[in-house]
Design a protein around this nucleic acid. Structure first.
Lengths: 219, 219
DNA sequence: CGTATTCTTGAAGCCAGTCAAAAACGGTGG
DNA sequence: CCACCGTTTTTGACTGGCTTCAAGAATACG
C-alpha cells in the first residue's frame, strides 16, 4: 500500500521511483472511521494526504459559528499552513466517510522539500489555487446575497458534473455553512429557486438544474 | 538599482549572488504614480514584487461591491495565482503612493523556479500564510459582527505597533471594505467604541486604544 | 482659500438570523 | 417488511444588525 499511496498523490506522483520510495519510508498511514476527528485546532503540525475517503475541514469563529472551508478528496493534502509556518493547527478536520491518510511530520516534510524541490512547486500551485478560491469566496460573501451564492454554486456544480442532474456532495447543513449562512435560510432559498422554476429538488440531495444560465445570474 | 532590488526581496534575498544576478537580468522595473492602476482583472499573468511604496489589491464581486483583500508593502509579491495556474489576473491592483515594482513574466518565473528551487519554497511559505489569513477572515465575516471584527482589527494593530496610539494604514473607506462592511456602518461602530471608552479618535485616522483587551473581546 | 473627497449622521427598510416546532428522511432491529 | 427513533430538513413568526439613500460636516489637497 505504501508505494501506491505516494504514486497516487499528485504532489509526489511526478517524482522518480527512488525519490518516491524515500518519501514512502517517512510516511505514516492512519485510518479513521466515518465521523471521527482527524485533527483539532492546537494539534501539532503535520502534512496529511488523503489516500481514500473524504474529509471535511472547518474553522470556528470566536463566537463558535462554524465555517466549512473545504472538502478533501483522495490526493488532496492539508496541514501545510501549520507545518510551513511552525504554528499549531488552526482547523478542525473530520472524516466524512471511512478515511485513510498518509501523514508526514513537520521535520520529515522539511527534509522532503529539501531533497525534492519539485514537491514545493507542486504544493505552491495547489495552495495558490486555494488562496484564489478563498479570496473569491470572501468577495462573494461580502458582496452577494445568499440567493446569488447558492445559484452560482449549483450552476458550477452542474457544469463540473457535465449534467443537469446533480447530487450535493455534502449535507444541506454543511452546504449552508460552506455558503456562509444557516440551514433555515438555505432551505428557504432552495424553495424559492424551485418556485422560480430554476431547479427541481428530489430526495437525497438530488437537484435537477432546469436553467443553469439563469441560476448563475440570480441576484 | 537592479541588484539591490533582488537582494531586498525576501523570496530572493537568500540566494547566492550569482543566482540573484541571473534573476535580476530577467526582472523588469516599472514605476507608478499614486492612484495609478497596476493590474486589472483579465490582465496577462505576471509576478510583481513591490520595491518601494504601497499598493492595494481588491476583488469585485459580481454585483460590483469591492472587497479589499490586502495592502502590499515593499518585499511583498503578487500575481502568483495567475502565473502558476495559467489563468488571467483576478484582482485589481492600484498604487496607494508612488510605487516601483520588479516584474517577472510567467515564462521567466517558470525558469527561475526551475533553476532556483529555494524560491518556490519561500513563495510557498508566504502563500500559505495568506491562505490561513484569508480563511480566518472568512470565518470572522460569517461568524462575527462588524463590531467584533473591528475591535479585533484595532487590537491587533495596536499589538503589532507596540503602542496604544495607532495610525490606520488606509482610509476608513478602505478599512470598511477590508472588514466586509460599508463606510457608514464603520463610522457608527467606531463611534460606539468611543462611547464605550474603548478607543479615542483623533483626526488623520489616529486612534488611541484605551483598553486593548476589552477591544479584542467586544461582541 | 476654495473645492473635491472623505467622513459622519439620520431615517427607513430589508435580508438574514434566531427560536421553536412540525415534517421528512434514513437507518435499524424486530 | 414495517414500525421506530434520531437526525436532518422545512416552515412559521419575529427580531435585529446592517445596508441604503440622502444630506450635512469635516478634512485634505492643490
Amino acid at each position: 500500500m505504501a508505494p501506491s499511496c505516494v504514486a497516487s498523490v499528485p504532489i509526489f506522483s511526478g517524482l522518480e521511483p527512488s525519490a518516491q520510495e524515500a518519501i514512502a519510508e517517512r510516511l505514516v498511514h492512519r485510518a479513521f472511521a466515518a465521523g471521527e476527528v482527524i485533527a483539532l485546532p492546537g494539534d501539532a503540525p503535520a502534512l496529511r494526504v488523503v489516500h481514500s475517503g473524504r474529509m471535511r475541514q472547518s474553522r470556528a469563529s470566536d463566537t463558535g459559528v462554524e465555517q466549512l472551508l473545504r472538502i478533501l478528496a483522495p490526493g488532496d493534502f492539508t496541514g501545510q499552513g501549520a507545518v510551513l509556518t511552525g504554528r499549531r493547527e488552526a482547523h478542525t478536520t473530520t472524516a466524512m466517510s471511512a478515511v485513510t491518510v498518509c501523514q508526514l511530520t513537520a521535520a520529515d516534510l522539511a527534509a522532503v522539500l529539501r531533497e525534492q524541490p519539485g514537491v514545493a512547486l507542486g504544493m505552491l500551485v495547489e495552495v495558490s489555487e486555494r488562496l484564489t478560491a478563498a479570496e473569491e469566496q470572501l468577495a462573494a460573501i461580502t458582496g452577494q446575497s445568499v440567493m446569488s451564492r447558492l445559484g452560482q454554486y449549483l450552476a458550477a456544480l452542474a457544469a463540473s458534473a457535465g449534467s443537469d442532474t446533480i447530487v450535493l456532495p455534502m449535507t444541506k447543513r454543511d452546504l449552508a455553512s460552506f455558503l456562509g449562512t444557516t440551514p433555515e435560510t438555505l432551505s428557504r432559498r432552495l424553495r424559492r429557486l424551485e418556485d422560480e422554476r430554476l431547479i427541481e429538488q428530489r430526495p437525497g440531495g438530488v437537484i435537477r438544474v432546469r436553467a443553469a444560465d439563469a441560476l448563475a445570474a440570480v441576484q
